[in-house]
Design a protein around this nucleic acid. Structure first.
Lengths: 203, 203, 203, 203
DNA sequence: AATGAATGAGCTTTCATTCAT
DNA sequence: CATGAATGAAAGCTCATTCAT
């Protein structure tokens, strides 16, 4: 068994990740975008009245911000845990971060998609916060790749660019992967790991 | 000089690609999204009255559709020309398609970004048409990679997945590349070509 | 005293028949027609903001439909009560239905006029419903006239046509009668009853 | 043969009564009302461009006014000719005017309906003119009925009211008669003449 | 927290009309 | 007369948000 689906593992996902209003907002932001989603619809899907929704979240912005915060916190926590639990070699660490990215963008597809496309609808402060977290995530892989190159495990002459390329191809999984498609998560992880290793010139 | 900026070349880009209303719509769709952009603002930015805008495009949808049609036609035409003009080896053909993708997503950043994120706001027919063109673009690279594997030039055991990964990492360039950043287009092409070749296991 | 203005009687009319928005809509539909009346004006006359009006009626159509429903329900209820309370002879029953028609179209002039002229602006379902009620009203008089002919009280060789002619001439009262004109309601009832009896050949 | 369909007779109707733009306007005013009809649609149905339509009629009002003028002139001319050609007795004259009203409202259904319902959309001057012509038409029947009562041919105690009642029931024919219905024009004339005579108490 | 009522501002779209060509 | 382009004004409707209950 390659993936341990134990609760608490960074590989384990269950449904209860979002509050009801955030889950409703996520659905509608994904379907119609932030601007295209109406508070009334969100409230209805959350099973709340409009003022009831405002009791929990003081504005539409607050829903978007709350959503992206949960998303990024979840992603970062999983990647960090994956890295912590990985072996000491750059290759093992690379695999761990890439796999965590892949699994997250397969399972939390909509959340990842909404957070990245609706960045433009965030108030400046919230956007800055989001970008900082995204950069932090990027830096985790940058560091691993740089160390791999230093150690001679990766041969790419462009470690930073390769790291970014790998990140973006993992992130893009969110926009085409379908859980009912031909690829199981484990298969996709296996294949994309091979491809990502090629991208950084793993020996 | 590695890139020939001769008009007519698939590497050459000039400004006059969009009608005034489409250019205005592009700007605003990029800034605020399709739903967040208002016809009034688009008309104002196009230097037209609102009915004046409607004289040229009968609806907001028509602007989005017109925009994505131009985008995809342009991208496909460039990739096809690049492929036609490339040498006969898989490696040369691979480089040609990847480079055309990269340059397009560096220069036509906003157009590519809007077309892909606002897919969800398109009427079903227009979306289908868009997806079909996108798939055609994807298939161009798929064919080259498959042939490269057959010929022994590429060693990836997952040609289709590698092709998709390469495409998505090129497409993602649109969402982070800045023309005033540290990388010139030629530099980025050089680096990403190296990375992409690694992803397909070019020998 | 020929007419008993007792509340509850089919001869009694007071002002409180319509909700504020419906009353405002009635005024403006009567003045300018359904298409010529604007929601903004209706809201203003109702003392509401536009969204305030929409809170009570979800569309302009809903105002028209609500209005015609009230009109037809009121008319039918009055005619039925008039018929119920009338004596057993065809002549008495004829007089009762005709008088109820006359009074309604004198007092509820605008409502009756709007309902009939704006039929064309109703959605098919609502129009069908309206026509059905109007036909029901027509049939009430048809039945009385037919029975009168059978009993020998009316001599017209064309009972159905006479019934329709009488109905339409009563309905038309709405388009020319003025409460501040020379004829009191009671006088008009007396005169038109005489004329209507002639139309069906009452002996 | 009761009706002579000879061209020039007040009983004869052909299609060429309206100019193309007026015919188009009539259609659309009948379907959607004056306010609901758009100049663009009228132009399209008339086979003209919008400026082409404006070349013939300087405004939407001008179409409505032109239309009602033709309608009333036609109706009045026919009724006058009918009266001129009728025999000397009140009864013959009554029948002639009533028949002319009936035929007009059967054949020129839409025109009569539009003229009467769209009165409210006419500019004051044009409305006054229209009302004057309508009153003139009414007076023709009033005179005949009054003379009939004086001569002892009609027994109604309310000659003016009876005359109006008869006129309105003839006018109302426009709103329910269908040429493809069960009644031929000649049959309807026969029946309504009987009913109208009853209304005025013809001996 | 739910409900009903409310609102200023804004939306996309259409209107009748004009004018240069 | 047709065409193409244009426009100020207004249309019906919806938005996020608030507040008294």
């Amino acid at each position: 068994m390659t993936t341990d689906q134990v609760p608490g593992s960074w590989r384990h996902y269950d449904d209860a990740a979002l509050s009801t209003p955030l889950a409703a907002a996520l659905d509608l932001f994904a379907e119609r975008g932030y601007e295209g989603a109406s508070i009334r619809e969100i409230a209805a899907r959350a099973g709340l009245s409009v003022p009831g929704l405002y009791h929990h979240y003081p504005s539409k912005q607050a829903l978007l911000i709350g959503l992206t915060r949960v998303v990024m916190a979840d992603l970062l926590a999983r990647s960090r845990r994956a890295l912590d639990e990985a072996g000491p070699t750059p290759r093992e660490q690379f695999d761990a971060v890439v796999e965590s990215l892949l699994r997250f963008h397969m399972v939390r597809r909509e959340q990842a998609f909404v957070a990245s496309t609706e960045m433009r609808s965030m108030e400046p402060d919230a956007r800055d916060e989001y970008v900082a977290l995204r950069d932090e995530q990027q830096r985790m892989l940058d560091d691993v790749v740089r160390e791999g190159v230093r150690a001679g495990d990766f041969r790419t002459p462009y470690p930073e660019d390769a790291s970014r390329a790998v990140t973006t191809m993992c992130v893009a999984v969110a926009s085409w992967y379908r859980p009912d498609g031909p690829l199981s998560p484990d298969e996709l992880v296996e294949r994309y790991l091979a491809i990502a290793r090629g991208a950084v010139g793993a020996v």
